[in-house]
Write a protein that binds this DNA or RNA. Structure first.
Lengths: 205, 205
DNA sequence: TCCGAGGCAGACCGGTCTGTACGCCTCGGT
DNA sequence: ACCGAGGCGTACAGACCGGTCTGCCTCGGA
């Protein structure tokens, strides 16, 4: 009863959410914009409600606390960013599982170029709140979901030890994101080259 | 005149600082402990002064603002962590430039195992404050110094394109740190293996 | 026509934040 | 013997935090 339980288990992505105008959707859309760009602690409840045009009572009617809203934001981020932007787009660009894996870094390259590049919210929240905080633990869980997508592609490609492959692959993804945050827009290319070597060493001998 | 200008340009590391007992040294030692473990925003000035046994007036006599103390902390972190812990220790463990490079990830392995593993303060501050904030910009600068150490070792080893080598290498370092924060203590081994491939492809053909 | 659910606006609470100010004390140099 | 620099403790200012609560209004179904 906290979050919208009538629309089904999956939160709508930001684009599909534009059509809706319910207060809970406006809150979530605003939270997505502010949290993904500026982090959690820098965005207060007062700013959230004023930016989404919602009263404070309405806010706390739908979300029992700010942390609950952050959890809903992370879930939305998993859908909008991980699934719709990265996995779906990479799968669209590649014809084989290996091509789809490497296309992840092509998508990263386009993403790094965007002027509103906001890094990875899961890493941000994890480092901002700490691994022991409930929000940090939730972020770790969403990061493991990303590895799950990579592992599934690795299994499709018939690569050796797909679980360890996904962990190494994820190191390249996270490292390139940090480098892009520092300003290295070519970080995706460097990571993609190392990713190629990783694939070669995980192919059946 | 803000920070100790009588002792020379370099701040003393935490171990060598234990002998000193000046208020400014106690403040810096406390800031190092608290900032490196819990980040910037989670540690307030009141906690800093009570933990270091210093009055608030004394604090602001030595540091004009909290941000100024954070800058001094980052400088100290560069000395204690980057130089003394990582670069010096890796150089001690390896006999050749290539061995010294790979030993970075051996040092990482030991570091990841520590119960008080606190991740990389430069990445933490960068993501916590944002790339546009002065503290974020300072963190980017200290991260580039790390790349400088790697690049110097790559030049010693006679590797091709040492600047690009260092950027790829740094991706592995940062990615493995994030993975270790998630709980993957073997991240250093995975990164080290990819680092070996990177060295091979940068050796003179 | 009525009535209650839900939305809006904003006051308010206790707590915390950075930063300032004031008073008292100790200690070292002249 | 003095006197000022610098340390300590603390109260305080002004802003903001998450969260609670009270009023008022609108709208849709019985």
């Amino acid at each position: 009863m906290t979050v919208n339980d009538a629309e089904g288990p999956t939160l709508l992505p930001a684009t599909a959410m534009a059509g809706r105008d319910e207060p809970v959707d406006r809150i979530l859309a605003t939270a997505y914009e502010l949290f993904s760009r500026r982090g959690i602690r820098d965005v207060g409840v007062n700013e959230l409600i004023s930016s989404s045009g919602v009263s404070k009572a309405t806010f706390y009617r739908h979300f029992p606390s700010k942390d609950a809203l952050v959890l809903a934001f992370l879930e939305l981020r998993d859908q909008v960013w991980t699934v719709d932007l990265i996995v779906a787009e990479a799968s669209r660009r590649g014809n084989t599982p290996e091509e789809r894996l490497l296309a992840v870094f092509d998508v990263f390259g386009d993403w790094f170029q965007r002027e509103d590049f906001e890094a990875c919210s899961f890493i941000n929240v994890l480092l901002e709140m700490g691994a022991g905080h409930p929000l940090g633990k939730a972020s770790i869980d969403y990061l493991s979901r990303i590895r799950g997508h990579i592992q599934a592609l690795a299994e499709e490609a018939g690569l050796d030890r797909p679980e360890e492959f996904a962990r190494s692959w994820h190191i390249l993804m996270k490292g390139s994101i940090i480098s892009a945050t520092e300003g290295d827009a070519l970080a995706s290319k460097r990571a993609q080259q190392m990713a190629r070597w990783l694939i070669e060493h995980h192919r059946g001998l």
